[in-house]
Design a protein around this nucleic acid. Sequence first.
DNA 1: ATAGGCCTGGAC
DNA 2: GTCCAGGCCTAT
Length: 250
Amino acid sequence: MPELPEVEFARGVLRRAIAGRTIVRVRVLHPSLAARLPAAARRRLTGRTVRAVERRGKYQLVSLDDGRTMVVHFRMSGDWSVGRAGERDEPYARAVFDLDDGSRVSLIDPRALATLALVDDVARALPPLGPEPGDRAFTPQALAASLRRRRGAIKPALLDQRVVAGLGNIYAVEALWVARIDPRVPACRLGPARLARLVVAARAVLAAAGRERWKVYDREGEPCARCGHAVRRIVQAGRSTYFCSHCQRR
DNA sequence: ATAGGCCTGGAC
DNA sequence: GTCCAGGCCTAT
């Protein structure tokens, strides 16, 4: 589930469940999370009241009344589940936060790749992130500046969170299809017109998330919805790329 | 720039 | 069994 629209939705779920609440108990149910959120951190979380739940890129930021922040990243398969304290733990529950109103929030994560960390300084804890796709700062000019020296293909560049914060594999693939750009084009070779199309396309595919099925993602061999040419799958930087080699131009 | 690792489950 | 998975980090 987790690309930007899904993370934003999850942030809302978490905010409604936890903002203003006090954490009365923390349990970690998977060893890989226990390493990231050791006993001392779990102790410090207990008794804290949640001030706000924000988001930067795909990071969810849970700010606490002691000034610290719990930083959450879903990676491949994380999600929140809201329930009542004392109920049986859901399948794949990896961390459980009991709250002072008798509710609880669980991190559900089949692949157990999600991360939780308690940090003093959020700005220092997060890696460098580019503009949010919905930001005014995400302009063709800004894209041009960050891609100017990148001779590698545009598609892997779009997955670099320093270029734009929140695009993942599916939406990078979809945005390039909408913008009619070949994913193999060197990033630095895109001119203003195509960068402008890419900005618009990235916003559009994120805005349409959930309402429409993917146009090319996971459609290898199917006809392109625009021109009927067969959709191709290639691997770039270890990730699947789907595209139409007829109407997505080099 | 690319491969491998982290984890587990699902599709074949 | 094998391969694949919406992310990201580290090492080469």
